[in-house]
């Protein structure tokens, strides 16, 4: 079979799969945020101010999107060390994002706003569960980043095909954009 890349502008099947998966994740958050809107329209809805720390986490995740983009460029330029370093920084920023979200939850807790348990209001519960699910998706990305990071130490594997890196970076940009959507959503709808 002739291996030619005549139609290399066609999407790689794995990358395509990721796009469909992103559609699927979007549906999950669309369901939750529309449930939020529906519930918000009813009575007994606790109004409270969003934790300030979410602004910092937003900045952190935007920076991480830049670093993963640079790491992809470094990979394509075959600069292994730079690629590895930027990958590591992205993973760290992902962890930092998760920690900052945790601070956000603590902030709510210290103001007496309960996410779960007796006396919790759906308003706070929604915020907690939606952001919590988002953090889970970020941490999933961090796991993938770490696997790539460790792999970048191995000198045995010599492949210059950047498809896996591209898939990872698309996913990472997606969770970034997803957070920005949620952040704006909570400010407008909440």
């Amino acid at each position: 079979m002739s291996v030619q890349r005549a139609d290399s502008n066609r999407l790689h099947p794995h990358k395509f799969t990721l796009w469909v998966a992103i559609g699927s994740i979007i549906m999950m958050f669309a369901a939750l945020t529309s449930a939020y809107i529906v519930r918000h329209a009813q009575q007994n809805w606790l109004e409270f101010e969003m934790p300030k720390v979410f602004w910092y986490s937003t900045v952190v995740i935007i920076i991480s999107s830049i670093t993963i983009h640079l790491s992809l460029k470094a990979f394509r330029a075959r600069e292994r060390l730079r690629y590895r370093m930027l990958l590591g920084i992205t993973a760290l920023l992902g962890v930092l994002f998760a920690i900052l979200q945790g601070f956000g939850f603590y902030d709510l807790y210290s103001r007496g706003i309960q996410i779960i348990g007796d006396g919790s209001n759906p308003s706070a519960s929604f915020l907690g569960i939606i952001t919590g699910l988002h953090v889970v998706h970020v941490l999933g990305g961090v796991v993938a980043l770490l696997i790539f990071f460790i792999r970048a130490y191995s000198t045995r594997i010599k492949t210059y095909d950047s498809t896996p890196q591209e898939i990872l970076s698309v996913y990472w940009h997606f969770v970034d954009i997803l957070w920005i959507y949620l952040f704006i959503f909570f400010h407008l709808a909440g």
Partner: peptide, 19 residues
Amino acid sequence: PVLFSGFILLIFDRNFGTS
């Protein structure tokens, strides 16, 4: 995924005291 969202909220109502 929408069903999954519904289940997540249900799990929290069942086990973590949300409403």
